[in-house]
Design a protein around this nucleic acid. Structure first.
Lengths: 119, 119
DNA sequence: CAGCTATATCGATGAATGTCAATCTATGTG
DNA sequence: CACATAGATTGACATTCATCGATATAGCTG
């Protein structure tokens, strides 16, 4: 945890801009940093592929073993990428028994699209 | 140039996956790399702020001088960020006289949203 | 409890990235 | 032409990041 408040929003968090001669309320650096976290999570080819696999799964879930195989990466690396996606609020992790199942957070794609159009 | 073919698409570029036991056509690593470029461009707070400023400008355009000031960055750094956004196909650059004007590529936000939902 | 399996965490390493100061290019002006 | 200005490019530096091998944790099974 620690990061997630953007994709499942709370408050606008206005920034008090100073010394700006003539402009509208530009995206504050705080907000910008928050939003950048989401895109940082998407800014890696292997993470996009992970999302693609999870998304394509009929059950809506994939366990790590299903995710490690198709990508040409070691298990620790996949685990690392999944963690980043979870921390960005994009994936949901549920452990059942020995296995961990990852699924898309519902509506998250629309939420990200919303971040974009609200820039 | 060099990068831009995703936001203004051409062909699907299928990948011949091999040795994959039982899965749907997962996002190929080629495609994944292309798409990641777009998100990489969005994965920096200062670039998000640049986009926010350009987007908020009533005229639809901003020149670099307008962009350097509100961010706490040097001119070369802003120039660098703008270049990345242009190469990602997100911003359009037009030089008129001494000044360079940057504007959002029309429809680009929707295009990016499309990339997401098509993952 | 001993051993196996699935997954996560740690530490190290090389590559990519953001930033700046200095320099270059191009346009406009005296 | 000499000079000023807007912007881009270059080179250096510090930080971040993706990846891996080794190890740790947690659940299952004998």
């Amino acid at each position: 945890m620690g990061v997630m408040n953007l994709l499942h929003p709370a408050a606008p968090a206005v920034d008090a801009s100073c010394c700006v001669p003539s402009d509208k309320p530009v995206l504050g650096s705080e907000e910008a940093q928050q939003k950048a976290l989401v895109f940082k999570a998407l800014a890696d080819p292997n993470r996009l592929r992970l999302l693609s696999i999870v998304k394509a799964e009929a059950s809506g879930e994939s366990c790590v073993c299903d995710l490690t195989e198709p990508l040409d990466l070691g298990q620790p690396t996949v685990s690392h990428h999944l963690k980043i996606l979870v921390e960005a609020g994009i994936l949901h992790r549920e452990k059942r028994g020995t296995w961990a199942y990852y699924s898309l957070v519902p509506g998250v794609m629309d939420d990200i699209a919303g971040i974009l159009s609200a820039l």
